[in-house]
Amino acid sequence: MGNFIKTNQNPLKYVRIKVADHSHIYLRDKQRCQRECENKPCTYFCPTRVYSWSGEDREIKVAYQRCVECGACPWGCPYDNISWSFPPGGYGVHYEL
């Protein structure tokens, strides 16, 4: 998974995520991303790159393990195609100092 910036520093290195064994994110209609969505903004507004376009499979891949629960994607998707819920209790992003 590529990162956003030149240094290739990975923001997830500094975030603790307890990954659940099943995804809390799914696409309602995978074909729709290819068919209707030109810009695929999920691939750039998601701060931790959960979403990436796979040219090979012609679909958006969802890496739920990278999700920091910012809540942007279900509203950011122009086609209301992202179904998002919280990971199970005690899982997901964890901030502690």
Binding site: F4, I5, F45, P47, T48, A72, W75
Partner: peptide
């Protein structure tokens, strides 16, 4: 605003950097 980031193709991680 999320709609602005969408329109302008911005990413908050890049903005922070």
């Amino acid at each position: 605003f999320l709609d602005q980031f969408n329109q302008k193709g911005l990413n908050i991680y890049q903005l922070l950097y």
